[in-house]
Simulated scan of single mutants.
Amino acid sequence: MAQQPVWLRDVVTSHLPSEMLQASPKGTVPVLIFTDSTVIDESLDIMLWASLP
């Protein structure tokens, strides 16, 4: 809906990528990382962001 390019990445939760942990130390998935280094790491917040006009 947001018509934004995305990079989908499969992760094994017991072996999280270091880039993801640097962006979001909570280690939860999903994580949305913007080019300005802003991070959204809550599913509901990501869904709300995606539904914005």
Rank of each mutant, 00 (worst) to 15 (best):
M1D: 13
A2C: 12
A2E: 10
Q3V: 10
Q4Y: 05
Q4K: 14
Q4S: 07
P5M: 05
P5R: 11
P5Q: 13
V6W: 15
V6D: 09
L8N: 02
L8F: 14
D10L: 07
D10H: 06
V11M: 03
V12S: 12
T13W: 06
T13H: 06
S14F: 06
S14W: 08
H15A: 13
P17L: 00
S18I: 15
S18W: 06
S18D: 13
S18M: 07
E19H: 04
M20F: 04
L21E: 04
Q22G: 07
A23T: 03
A23M: 04
S24A: 15
S24W: 01
P25F: 10
P25L: 08
K26L: 12
K26V: 08
V29K: 02
V29I: 13
V29C: 01
V29H: 02
V29P: 01
L32S: 03
I33C: 05
I33M: 11
F34I: 03
F34C: 10
F34S: 05
T35A: 14
S37I: 00
S37C: 05
S37L: 00
S37N: 15
T38A: 14
V39I: 13
V39H: 01
I40R: 02
I40S: 05
I40K: 02
I40V: 15
D41W: 02
E42Q: 11
E42D: 15
E42I: 01
S43L: 13
S43N: 03
S43P: 04
L44S: 11
L44V: 14
L44D: 07
L44N: 06
D45N: 12
I46D: 03
I46Y: 07
I46K: 01
M47L: 15
M47F: 11
M47E: 14
W49I: 00
W49M: 02
A50N: 10
A50R: 04
A50G: 13
S51T: 14
S51K: 15
S51F: 12
L52V: 10
L52Y: 01
L52I: 07
L52W: 03
P53N: 13
